[in-house]
Design a protein around this nucleic acid. Sequence first.
DNA 1: TGATTTAAAGACCATTTGGTCTATATCTTT
DNA 2: AAAGATATAGACCAAATGGTCTTTAAATCA
Lengths: 204, 204
Amino acid sequence: MSNRTSVPLPRGRPRSFDAEAAVERAMDVFWSRGYHATALPDLLRVTKLSRGSLYAAFGDKHSLFLRALDRYIADAVTRMDIELDPRKEPVDGLRAYLAGYVDRTSGTHGRRGCLVIATTMELAGRDADVNRRIASFFKVMEARVADALSRAKAAGKLADGVDPANAARILVCFVEGLRVISKTAPTGAITQAAADALLDRFIR
Amino acid sequence: MSNRTSVPLPRGRPRSFDAEAAVERAMDVFWSRGYHATALPDLLRVTKLSRGSLYAAFGDKHSLFLRALDRYIADAVTRMDIELDPRKEPVDGLRAYLAGYVDRTSGTHGRRGCLVIATTMELAGRDADVNRRIASFFKVMEARVADALSRAKAAGKLADGVDPANAARILVCFVEGLRVISKTAPTGAITQAAADALLDRFIR
DNA sequence: TGATTTAAAGACCATTTGGTCTATATCTTT
DNA sequence: AAAGATATAGACCAAATGGTCTTTAAATCA
């Protein structure tokens, strides 16, 4: 039977560029400048692709942007899955989750901002593809945090009267708000103190 | 001495448009679409000005945008000064402040988003004029909230161990985060419950 | 009425935008 | 070596960008 059903090997010159790497570099520039402010030449520069290759590989600017956004979101979800891993102590996980945001909102990292928030504000209202992705991301995030809080509650680690769903929304809003105000004032130590103070109100 | 020092009366055709009203309409469109996505024709349409008049009155797109942003920020500060008026009960003030955000993040209002946050994400990193205004706005807001919390503490209304400065940062981050996630999911009731739950953790 | 000032209308401009296409060089397999 | 496949470079395009300028109509005061 050998290779009768296998896809024939491609002939000729092989792809010489790594599409995933190009998406990552495109993500970087969208992240730094936003969608509208990123022009084709910027994308060609960072991906080191010619116009023709870029359009052949990704279709158009908007599709490439969606790929970049998906990549950014996937990275964020992966991080959350590690920080809030159900096999860990839930409160430790929540501390790690908050610590990650403190780190990402401090100094230079903070000034860079967040591609999801920038995209939310710039495009979500008028771009259904974007809106879907962002809404689902925030939902996933809130669910993961609520889950960790539920586990903490079951272990008797939550303060009296704390509702996991409410607290999850509060924590998510807090970290997203952090990323906003840290664009202009990325003050790490103060942020850490605020994050600690907030979590301390919820745990016992 | 009559009118010796007075400015001579203007001759000829008087200004027939209200600059402040034009700024407000420009603010509306920047608010809905963002800076880059707002094109000159959009501004001409909503202000009902000709190109010449607009440039004569405001200089250029960027200057008009700064006027619009200043207007938006001034409105927000005015609102805060009413909600957090020192002559009111501080906790009532904080409730009013949060209620205002719940309202602005619900339904259609929520989908509209916030010009300050959109501008922060789109321009603050690369535009010093914008950065100054935004940084100062967030500082003012945090200070007003911290002030109300200090007054509440002095009146014995705060829970044990709550630091007004920390709590202020938490509340500001929470409301700004609310505005972000409400762009795609403006769920008013849930938001109100979260706001209540958060404030309840700080007051006695 | 006539002088003066203003705004509107829109022609005009250089530059930039996202996007297409062709010619050429390069690489791999047969 | 030949054939086939792919990437690059860059010319090219129409449309849109922010911005200037001139002409004309309108409104006011002297």
